[in-house]
Structures are given as structure tokens and as C-alpha cells.
Design a protein around this nucleic acid. Structure first.
Length: 651
RNA sequence: GCCGGGGUAGCUCAGUCGGUCAGAGCGACGGACUCAUAACCCGUAGGUCGGCGGUUCAAGUCCGCCCCCCGGCACCA
């Protein structure tokens, strides 16, 4: 039996699962169900990425040690997939000792092949990003986040793999999909590759290097290797594993933000270790919410479970796969979701199933009649087209199009019913009318059967219900889509009871309900992450300072005398600010997107007067104007509601 | 400024190789029907497919220039 193996990313446990995680995993589950329905042995691998400084700190904040903390969050992910009915076959945590075996194994193979070297490195390190930054970047960052670090690190000779990677992308054009992502990757690799630092000695919460336990693996070797450790790589000695059978993997499903790691670093590691490469990396887009990306401070985090409570897993799955063109960014809103649910699931397939079963029961005694000729309305041909198109689209992960082709069949059936008016035919005593009635109901039920099978990967629960309503035996998931054809419905089959598979929703009410549940979930999540309050609140997590620290900052009232845009700059304005000195200061401020120059002249602002001068866009800024912003959003200048004297110090 | 992605009916968006592509769903209005989940069916949307040029027998669909929006980066101290 052919096998198919795919993965979702290994989710970082720094945050509780939200709908973005669910999206990827739902897609993966859909693909898996589809491949199963092609008769393949399909497996889905996922897991949690649990090491690193951020997790260490989050744990600390929650008053837990990292192990306890990650146990908790990882379990939340696992539970999430269970509750969403997602069929995960391999779930691996990077904190699992078996995972460490795999990481060490791959590392050692790379080491033996000369792809690893040790070097010392001194540089500015950004604590929040857990990464070394350039001096330039450091200067722009929050000074609290920057420290200078000298450390011995192990490096991976990524630069050696440039040509082999380019050859890979060129010989296997499908290796990275969609094409726009492939182009980006190709451009990135062509522009030259720098060796990759793969260890940290400053960190404890991680997997120690086998040859140098003072170091732990930095994210790449650790997290990416999960795809192999999950199926038993590294532990073959202790018995039989799935590794031989499931590697190389067919598809790594990833978000577009992590394409580089999967399409560049990961194959390079495997090349160096002399191991087979994945067949494909497929990157999807992001969910866009009203008001932009999800963010904690905006308080617009959306979770999957509240949505599921109201529209079921089918409703969520259907919306995500129908409304969003896979590979592109897509909008998410509760209202659009509820509307889509009503239009397509309740009024569409749900209603069609309901009227079909009802007519079978009323006009044919609950038995599927024989198709004794009569007008088939072109349904057999249309069904054949739908099957071919939908299967083709599924293969290419074009879910929204697969659904469109199924819906072209379903909506045709609704028209077909009206054209033939079975309720009129039923009133007639004539044989011809009887035959037409039976043919109509057979064709209707058969088209519905075909459509239901095609929909099973996306809406498994409802598909099963419709399947049973049509009196079909067993699981619709066991239907072979590659053999699905018109005519499979057997005359004489007893149909099931009529019921609403997808009850219609009151959209406004449904939206309210989801939002209310969302609030609740938010509170639960806060608890999970060990925080007393909802994450919506601002948290002040900067270190405490003394009064003396503050006194070192000399802030003055300044009067803006002139303001002009900076050429070629999007954000900067150049200001002349009088702070009572002999000459006004020239200050560059990143506020051009929020303020027009003429708005500023004559305005009083707060100026940091003893700040080191800084060069930007070829000009020197002699200070800084103070502004407030949320999440690097739009800045709001600090000012004075009274006429504060120019040059007065802020204390 | 550079690199991506977009600008198509009131709204959300499809449009694979240039030739029924000017579309779907939602919303609105009118009608018809009763098997069905106030459902389904029929009709009504006058959208210069962002703008201007070009290639072509033929262009949302290819090329050039321009405008606008969204990401990311280069300048937010």
C-alpha cells in the first residue's frame, strides 16, 4: 500500500494554541483524510517545540520550572487536537528524551562529515529574540534587551551547501510551494549563505551537545529534527520504529514565516548527515483578523474551540478551507463564518440531504427506487466532472476549488429537483409519472452520495451523517475516491431518518455566543500560562529601576520650530526643536506616518536632551522626541496641556 | 527607497495555458413553489476587471510606465 506522511510545524509552547495553529493542523488532517480515501496509508506528525530562553522565562513568570510549564502547555496542544477531532498519529515533544537521541544522532553525522565546527563569537545579543544582532540592530533595540556576549559556538557550514540547495530547487521545482515562496527561497540562497550558529552555552533549558555538554542545541537542530524523532529515528536499536517506512516525509506543511528554515536549513542539515530529504515544503498564508494580525495587546486572539462549540468542527473546517485560498492570506471573522455556514452547510448540503431523505420516505416508502430511465438532468456527467476536478484539486491542496466543484454538483441537484417537481409527480396515478418520480429521486440521492464522499475529508462529521441518512453502510471515510463513480447507489437501500445535519444559525446570536466563549477561553488561557489576569491587559515586565536611574535621563520641554520630511524615508521627520539652548536641536523622529510636518510647528514636545547623537538616513539626530505607541503601532507625541516653559526639565 | 502580495459587482472574493471571463457567495428587490433547515428555484446588479500606453486576430489574463493598499526590510533613541 502506498504511504503518505505529512507534518505540521512543531508548535512553540510559549503561547497557548490559537486558531492559527488549528488552521495548519486542520489542513494537515484534511490532507491526511484525503490520502486515506485514495487508499494510501497516511500519517500525520506534529508536536511541540519546548526549549529556549523564552520558554524558560515564561515558565519562571508562571512560577513553574520549564518542565512543569511545558508539560502543561504541550498537553493543551494535544487536547486541542483531540477536541477538534484531528487525527494525529505522531506527537513528539522536543523535551522527550527520545527526541534528544535523534538530535544527537544527526548532529554526530554532520560532525563526522565535517559540516560542524566550533568558533568563538562576540556580539550583541537580543534577549527577547534569543539571537545575536548586528550593532546596527542592537542600537535600534530596547537597551534592556541587549547584552554583549562572547561565546564559543558550534557552527553549521551552511555556506557549503549553496549550490546543492540551488540544484535541489531546480531539479525539483515542486520542492517549495507555492511558487512565490519558491522564488523567495531561491533568491535567498542565491544571495549567499552564512554559516549557522547551532549551539548556545548561555542556555540551560535545551539538549546538551553529545561531545560538549556545556553547550545546548539552539533551535534549528533541535526543533526541525522532531519530524524524524517523532517516527522513531535515533531509537531503532530499542526495537522496530516507523522511521524506515515514513521517511522521507512527503510534505512539511508550514506557515510562510518559517519557510526558510524548512526549505533551506533543514535540507542542508540532512544533506550533511547523508539522510534522505523531504519531498516537499508547502507554505500557507496567515489568517488576517479585523484590525490586523492577532496580538495579545490588541486582544484579538481567536481560539478554535469557542468556534467549534457553536458551528462544530465541520463549520470551522469548512470555513477555513472554503473561504481562504490555500497558500494565501485570508480573512477570519465570526460573522463571515456563521454566514458561510448557513449559506453552504445549512441551506446547501444539509437542506438537500433533508429534502432528499424526506422525499424518499414520503414517496418511496423510505427505499431508494430504481433509476428506470427518465431525464437525469445531466447529473451523471456532472458528477463525473466533479469527482475528477475535486480529486485533482485536493491533490494540489486547492481546497477551495475542490469545494467549488462539489458545490457545482450540489446546486445543480437543487435545480434538478425543482425542474422535476417530485411532489407533483407523486400526486399522479400514471405510470410515466411514477417512473419519472423514481428516476428523479434516484438521481438526486446518488448525486448527494457522490458529493458526500467527496466532502468527507473536509466535513467528516456531517458527511458521515448524510452517508447514514442515505442508508449507506460503514464509514464514508472508507470510500475510495479514486474509484468513486456514478451508479454506486443500490436500489432498495433503506434510507435513514430525516434530521438536520447542519441546523441553521441565527448569525447575530452565533457571533455573540462565540465571542462570549472566547472571553471565557481567554481567562482559562491566562490561568494556563500562569498569569493572574487576562492577557488583554498590558503587562509591565520591564525591570524595576531606582530614582537615580531615572535622573540620568534629561528630558526637556521643547518647542518645534520647523519640521520637514526626510528624503527617501517613510517614517522620519526632521525637526528643529528649541529647548532653550542657543541653537535649536536637529532631531529626527520616526513619526512621519502619523503626523504631517505642518501639524508639528509650534507644538510643545518632550525631548530627551542628553541622548547620544545618532545617525539616520545620513543625518544626525541630536536627541529624541518622546512618543507613545502600542505594539510599535502609530506613535502619539507626548505633550503638555498647559504652556510649559521651553527648556523646563521633566522630573 | 528596495523586495514580496494585492487593487475585479454594495460587501468578501474566484478567475489554472490570453479567445462563452466579465463570474460565485453574501446582502437587496420582485416572482414562483411547498419535498426541505423562513429552505430551495427563477428574475433583477448596468462593475471603464486601479490608470495610461503597448504586443496580439483576441488581454483582468502578457509587456512598460504610473497611482493606491497590505506585509517585510532599509531610517521608528
Amino acid at each position: 500500500m502506498p504511504r503518505f506522511h505529512l507534518s505540521t510545524p512543531i508548535y512553540y509552547v510559549n503561547a497557548a494554541p490559537h486558531i492559527g495553529h488549528a488552521y495548519t493542523t486542520i489542513v494537515a488532517d484534511t490532507i491526511k483524510r484525503f490520502r486515506r480515501m485514495l487508499g494510501e496509508d497516511a500519517y500525520l506528525t506534529t508536536g511541540t517545540d519546548e526549549h529556549g530562553q523564552k520558554v524558560e522565562r515564561s515558565a519562571h513568570k508562571a512560577g513553574l520550572d520549564p518542565k512543569q510549564f511545558t508539560d502543561r502547555v504541550s498537553a493543551a496542544f494535544r487536547r486541542e487536537w483531540d477536541e477538534l477531532g484531528l487525527e494525529v498519529d505522531h506527537f513528539r515533544r522536543t523535551s522527550d528524551p527520545r527526541h534528544a537521541l535523534a538530535v544527537c544522532r544527526i548532529f554526530e553525522r554532520c560532525l563526522e562529515n565535517g559540516a560542524i565546527y566550533k568558533d568563538s563569537y562576540t556580539g550583541k545579543y537580543h534577549l527577547g529574540d534569543e539571537a545575536f544582532v548586528t550593532d546596527e540592530e542592537a542600537a535600534q533595540s530596547d537597551p534592556e534587551q541587549i547584552t554583549t556576549v562572547t561565546e564559543e559556538n558550534y557552527f553549521f557550514r551552511l555556506s557549503d551547501f549553496q549550490q546543492r540547495l540551488i540544484d535541489l530547487y531546480e531539479s525539483q521545482p515542486d520542492f517549495v510551494q507555492p511558487d512565490t515562496r519558491r522564488n523567495e527561497v531561491l533568491a535567498f540562497v542565491r544571495s549567499g549563505l552564512r554559516d549557522l550558529s547551532i549551539s548556545r552555552s548561555s542556555l540551560r533549558w535545551g539538549i546538551p551537545l553529545p561531545n560538549d555538554p556545556e553547550h545546548v542545541f539552539y533551535v534549528w537542530f533541535d526543533a526541525l529534527t522532531t519530524y524524524m524523532s517523532a517516527i522513531g529515528y535515533g531509537e531503532e536499536e530499542s526495537g522496530e520504529t516507523d522511521y524506515e517506512r515514513l521517511w522521507p516525509i512527503d510534505v512539511h506543511l508550514v506557515g510562510k514565516e518559517i519557510v526558510r528554515f524548512h526549505a533551506v536549513y533543514w535540507p542542508a542539515f540532512l544533506m550533511a548527515a547523508n539522510l534522505p530529504l523531504p519531498r516537499q515544503v508547502w507554505a500557507h498564508g496567515w489568517l488576517i483578523f479585523q484590525g490586523g494580525k492577532m496580538s495579545k495587546t490588541k486582544g484579538n486572539i481567536v481560539r478554535a474551540l469557542p468556534v467549534k462549540e457553536v458551528v462544530g468542527t465541520d463549520g470551522l473546517r469548512y470555513y477555513l478551507l472554503r473561504e481562504i485560498v490555500f497558500g494565501q492570506d485570508g480573512n477570519f471573522s465570526h460573522k463571515a463564518l456563521a454566514t458561510r455556514y448557513n449559506a453552504d452547510l445549512a441551506n446547501g448540503i444539509g437542506n438537500l440531504a433533508s429534502r432528499t431523505v424526506s422525499m424518499l420516505s414520503k414517496y418511496c416508502g423510505g427505499e431508494v427506487p430504481a433509476a428506470s430511465g427518465g431525464d437525469d438532468g445531466g447529473l451523471p456527467a456532472l458528477a463525473a466532472t466533479s469527482i475528477a476536478d475535486a480529486v485533482g484539486h485536493y491533490r494540489r491542496f486547492a481546497f477551495s476549488r475542490a469545494l467549488e466543484s462539489v458545490w457545482s454538483l450540489l446546486s445543480r441537484v437543487d435545480k434538478y429537483i425543482v425542474e422535476h417537481r417530485p411532489w407533483m409527480l407523486a400526486k399522479s396515478r400514471e405510470t410515466a409519472a411514477r417512473e419519472e418520480l423514481e428516476a428523479t429521486l434516484y438521481n438526486t440521492a446518488e448525486a448527494l452520495r457522490v458529493a458526500t464522499a467527496l466532502l468527507a475529508p473536509i466535513i467528516p462529521d456531517g458527511a458521515q451523517k448524510v452517508w447514514e441518512a442515505l442508508g449507506q453502510e460503514g464509514r464514508v471515510a472508507n470510500v475510495r475516491l479514486d474509484r468513486l463513480a456514478w451508479g454506486g447507489l443500490v436500489a432498495g437501500t433503506r434510507s435513514g431518518p430525516q434530521r438536520a445535519v447542519y441546523p441553521r444559525l441565527d448569525v447575530a446570536k452565533a457571533v455573540k455566543q462565540m465571542e462570549a466563549l472566547e472571553e471565557q477561553a481567554l481567562a482559562e488561557q491566562a490561568e494556563l500560562m500562569g498569569r493572574g489576569r487576562p492577557v488583554k491587559r498590558i503587562e509591565i515586565d520591564t525591570p524595576e529601576i531606582e530614582i537615580g536611574d531615572f535622573a540620568r535621563v534629561d528630558m526637556r520641554v521643547g518647542l518645534v520650530q520647523a519640521a520637514e520630511p526626510v528624503r527617501k524615508s517613510r517614517k522620519l521627520l526632521q525637526l528643529q526643536v528649541d529647548i532653550g539652548e542657543a541653537e535649536p536641536r536637529t532631531i529626527l523622529a520616526g513619526i512621519a506616518e502619523a503626523y504631517a510636518p505642518e501639524q508639528l510647528v509650534g507644538r510643545r514636545v518632550a525631548v530627551v536632551a542628553n541622548l547620544q547623537p545618532r545617525k539616520m538616513m545620513g543625518r544626525v539626530s541630536q536627541g529624541m522626541v518622546v512618543a507613545a505607541s502600542l505594539d510599535h503601532g502609530k506613535p502619539h507625541l507626548a505633550g503638555f496641556s498647559e504652556e510649559a516653559p521651553v527648556g523646563a526639565r521633566l522630573t
